[in-house]
């Protein structure tokens, strides 16, 4: 292992240990774990009942000698929808908090001048903290996935197959990219702010816009969402009528899609939902088709994570040692 790699790994280990000791992070993690566990438990309980009904139907059909039995409409991975939504909302706050803590800790405890007095470049510092954060997120996401799989198997009475494990793993990698982008955002905002707490508030403001407001605007602008029960239904239009009318709204739909495209959360959501069978239209297709269909979302996730990491590296490289410590 080269000297540089060794230094990066030391910073990463320091980042991991410090994060595990943070009470703020533990509180948020507890909220995420409880909310996710509850969401999967509810879904799995309902699923078990539906699965039992389907099994009873299949057994009755086979007993009657029927050869054509309708396939199960159930999709076990879709029960993880709540878990992904919580990662999207609460996970992003955890990532921002981690970014905030990793910078403010060094500023307030005045260890940044000490760190900078060592032969440690800004790039190594950024890479080390980023790797440490990735290790924390990996632990968090893996724990969530294992709890989800076990809950689906034991409560929902349906264990996922290797192909589904692969798709779930890819969704977890997407979650890792998503959280790492928000980690960088939290660290950059804190490092740039004169007072660390203000940096945290600014990062949370951006989170609010990207995760909650932009997707909400995109959803609200959907023509069919203009009336309770659906505008097209209120106008007595069937699906063909709806498509015929929407051909006159291509510009409008482009604007709406563009607003959604600006949201990193929406890209993560689309990819994770495609991988976990949440959207019914994706269920008949195999992994290569799904990856091709969501290639833009994959690209945006990588692009956001890469650009924000470069921003973090630039910010930490330019960060001057603070002789008196931060004062928020």
């Amino acid at each position: 292992m080269s000297e540089s790699t060794n230094r990066i790994m030391q910073v990463a280990r320091h980042e991991y240990r410090a994060a595990v000791r943070s009470r703020a992070l533990i509180i948020l993690l507890a909220i995420l774990v409880v909310a996710t566990g509850f969401s999967v438990f509810i879904g799995a309980t309902d699923y078990a009942a539906q699965l039992a009904e389907y099994d009873a139907y299949r057994a009755a059909a086979q007993a009657q000698g029927l050869t054509r039995i309708a396939p199960s409409p159930l999709a076990v991975l879709s029960l993880l929808r709540g878990a992904f939504e919580y990662l999207e909302i609460i996970g992003a706050i955890i990532a921002i908090t981690l970014g905030y803590l990793s910078v403010s800790r060094e500023r307030v405890s005045r260890t940044l001048p000490l760190l900078r007095s060592r032969p440690l470049t800004g790039t190594e510092l950024a890479a080390g903290t980023f790797l440490g954060a990735l290790a924390i997120f990996t632990t968090l996401i893996a724990a969530t996935a294992v709890v989800g799989i076990v809950a689906l198997g034991t409560i929902g009475n349906d264990w996922i197959n290797p192909a589904q494990v692969l798709r779930l793993t890819l969704a977890c990698v997407a979650a890792l990219l998503y959280l790492s982008a928000f980690y960088c955002l939290g660290a950059i905002a804190t490092a740039k702010a004169k007072m660390p707490a203000n940096g945290l508030v600014i990062a949370l403001g951006i989170w609010l816009l990207v995760v909650l407001v932009l997707p909400q605007i995109g959803d609200t602008l959907d023509a069919d969402n203009q009336l309770p029960g659906g505008l097209f239904q209120a106008l007595g239009l069937n699906h063909d009528g709806e498509i015929a009318v929407l051909t006159h709204f291509t510009g409008y739909e482009q604007v709406r899609t563009g607003i959604e495209e600006a949201s990193l959360a929406k890209h993560f959501e689309r990819f994770a939902f495609a991988m976990s069978d949440v959207k019914e239209r994706y269920r008949p297709y195999g992994l290569p088709w799904l990856l091709n269909e969501t290639r833009h979302d994959i690209g945006w996730l990588f692009a956001y994570a890469a650009v924000l990491f470069l921003g973090l590296r630039r910010t930490l490289t330019r960060q001057q040692p603070i002789p008196t410590g931060g004062n928020s």
Binding site: A24, L28, I31, I89, T97, Y100, P196, A197, V201, S328
Partner: peptide, 15 residues
Amino acid sequence: RRSLALLSAIGVWLV
């Protein structure tokens, strides 16, 4: 701690 206070409040809001 300021950060702990703010994040605890955000935790309550999330719940």
